[in-house]
């Protein structure tokens, strides 16, 4: 999306998705703020149980989402150059990174459940599971959107003259990445 040289009035993609993105970001902003202020009242509890989280898994997931976002940027650049094949390739690679995120997150959840940890174990885990699962569902939705866009691109539905659909899907996917960029340090690192 970086190739636009002339300034435009509206962001790339359908404006409706941006309204949706802002609504989603608003919900996550409230979630993050409530987490931080709840932690303020239970600092030791949050710091103690934060150390039970797998930071390596979180690192892999962060790198996976950043990489998938980068791949989506390359997909948009490719379709702008009318290179449909590369566009589909980049979108497929982005989907692969999204899949990696889901697998790692699933394994993380499985580890916690096997250790007897639940949503109701304590305040920290309530936030951990709620926040990360809410984001997890956004990754699933984002992947469904990217898959639909990739399929349409594969069938020749986009060109250098018309690629709004790809930009729309890309904007949503970047939002999913953006939210995780804040979630990762807040829940896994800051103490």
């Amino acid at each position: 999306m970086e190739l636009h040289s002339a300034a435009r009035r509206y962001p790339p993609g359908d404006l409706a998705i941006w309204i949706f993105i802002l609504a989603e970001l608003g919900v996550f902003a409230v979630f993050f703020t409530v987490y931080a202020f709840t932690r303020m009242q239970h600092v030791e509890l949050f710091n103690t149980y934060q150390q039970t989280l797998d930071q390596r898994a979180a690192l892999i997931n962060t790198l996976a989402l950043i990489t998938s976002s980068y791949f989506v940027v390359r997909a948009v650049a490719a379709i702008r150059e009318n290179d449909r094949r590369s566009c589909v390739g980049w979108l497929s690679a982005a989907l692969g990174m999204g899949g990696l995120f889901l697998v790692v997150k699933f394994l993380e959840y499985a580890h916690h459940f096997a250790a007897g940890v639940q949503l109701s174990t304590n305040a920290f885990y309530t936030f951990y599971f709620s926040l990360t699962f809410f984001h997890f569902m956004h990754v699933v939705l984002g992947m469904a959107i990217l898959a639909a866009v990739a399929l349409k691109a594969h069938r020749g539905g986009y060109s250098a003259a018309e690629y709004t659909g790809i930009e729309t899907g890309a904007s949503y996917w970047h939002m999913v990445d953006l939210v995780w960029l804040i979630l990762f340090p807040l829940v896994y690192v800051m103490r």
Partner: peptide, 30 residues
């Protein structure tokens, strides 16, 4: 991400700043 990936760097007007504003509000509260 907002500027280079979402493409807001090339947008003028209020939409240019929505992501930065979103980052600053929860960022300040956190």
């Amino acid at each position: 991400v907002g500027d280079y990936f979402m493409g807001l760097r090339g947008v003028r007007g209020p939409w240019r700043w929505v992501i930065l504003l979103w980052l600053l509000i929860p960022g300040s509260l956190i």
